[in-house]
Simulated scan of single mutants.
Amino acid sequence: MRTDIFARLDREPVPPKIVIPRMSSTRTALFGGTLAFYVFVVAAVLTDSWLVALDWKTFLFRPYQQWPGLHAFLDYFVVLGQRGPTAVMIAAWLGWRSWRQHTLRPLLVLGTSLLLLNVTVGAVKLGLGRQGPHYGTQVGSPELFSGGDIFPSGHTANAVVTWGILAYLATTPRTRRYLSLGSSALALGVGATTVYLGTHWVSDVLLGWAAGLLILLAMPWFEPMIGRAELAIFAARDRLRAYRGARAGAPASPGEDEPQPPRRPSDGEPPRRPVGAARSGRAGAAGSSVAPGQAKGTLAQSRTHHPVRSDRPPVTPAGNRRPPQSRQIAGG
């Protein structure tokens, strides 16, 4: 049994059974009610209703002046709703869980939710163009279509999504219940803090809560796409590993380890015999006797297939360089 401090760093031998949430009737009803609330808040701001009057009353009350002792703490607490720091923290934790559970689903779910958050919230922000409380020009005005990007609250929606995704990915009902309560309290606190600091209207925070909750409730609709993306990524990884293995096992050059095919003679070129066969053939010809009747045919055949090299020295323009053989004198 291992007792060192690194024993807990081992990957889980058998991944836990992950139950993927489905779009049940309860979840569908919650999605429909949240969507209706979202439309109601947008319509109330567009029609300059009592909700806009509540926005101005809360801002003119100036909560940051009523309880100045909380200001220093809440300046740091509101960072838990900023997209950059929270995304890094949650991605680090989910990356660890992905490695332990042998799956990419946690990271893919986080990426999908953040993409939906940026698209939906960003589109409404730019489309309505509402200014923040500190940039209001007329008391009682909704401050719409003025080039702002404050409605809905991005801090609030981001807090709902990034911290709520932990509850969505929980593997046990008890853990999901506790994480749901914790993430809800954190999202409510971040939204209220932005109202306290005067950076958002009350209606901004209400719409931010609804926007984040809509994304969490709609995530089961994107689970099939997430599953296909995970399979595609693993398939690409396997192909890359196979390619690297093939490259590592291949020879450095094709001429070193692989045998080369024999060269075929070109047209008009006599076929070449192996060196050993040629030597053995010459030795056999020297040691064998040829009948007189076969000498002429054998000589013609040898001239046809294997030209006989002349023993005469080559004659060059400078003359014969081979010294003449001395003639033997009879009786000498």
Rank of each mutant, 00 (worst) to 15 (best):
A170N: 09
F222G: 03
I20N: 09
R11I: 03
L206E: 05
A167L: 07
G147V: 00
G122P: 01
P85H: 09
W99V: 10
T120G: 02
G95E: 13
S310C: 03
A300L: 13
A232V: 15
R241T: 02
V109A: 14
P142K: 07
L74D: 04
T193W: 01
D311W: 10
R264M: 10
S266F: 06
M23L: 12
A232Y: 15
V315T: 04
D311S: 13
F77E: 01
L107Q: 01
A185M: 13
Y135W: 11
D75H: 02
R174V: 05
W209T: 05
G164I: 03
G268R: 01
L214T: 09
P270L: 14
E223M: 08
P142N: 13
N158S: 14
G284V: 12
P142R: 10
F40K: 02
G95C: 08
R8M: 09
S180Q: 07
I215L: 06
A87K: 06
T194A: 03
V52M: 00
H200G: 05
M1F: 00
T58Q: 02
T86L: 13
G154H: 02
G32T: 06
A218T: 07
G245T: 02
E258Q: 14
P133N: 12
F37R: 02
V315M: 07
A72T: 05
A167S: 14
K125T: 02
I150F: 03
S25T: 14
T3F: 11
M219A: 09
V121N: 06
N320M: 08
R22F: 09
F61M: 11
S146N: 10
P133E: 12
A246W: 01
G154Y: 02
D149N: 02
R272V: 12
P259H: 14
L117E: 08
L214C: 13
P262G: 11
M89K: 00
Q101S: 14
W221Q: 13
T194S: 04
A285H: 15
Q294H: 10
H306W: 09
F37T: 01
V124Y: 00
F59L: 11
L169I: 12
G136W: 03
A235L: 01
S153A: 03
A278E: 10
V121E: 06
V121I: 06
R272I: 09
R100F: 04
R177I: 01
R27D: 11
S25A: 15
T26W: 12
L115H: 04
L214M: 15
G122N: 01
L207G: 11
G198P: 05
L35I: 04
G208L: 02
R309C: 05
T137E: 08
L70M: 14
G227D: 13
L110R: 05
V88T: 11
L214N: 12
H71R: 12
S326A: 13
L213K: 08
T112K: 12
L217S: 07
G281A: 05
L117Q: 11
V308M: 09
Q66V: 03
A248M: 00
S253R: 07
V119S: 07
G332H: 05
M225S: 07
Y135Q: 13
Q101L: 14
L188A: 14
T172L: 08
A187W: 03
Q301R: 14
A252D: 03
R105Q: 08
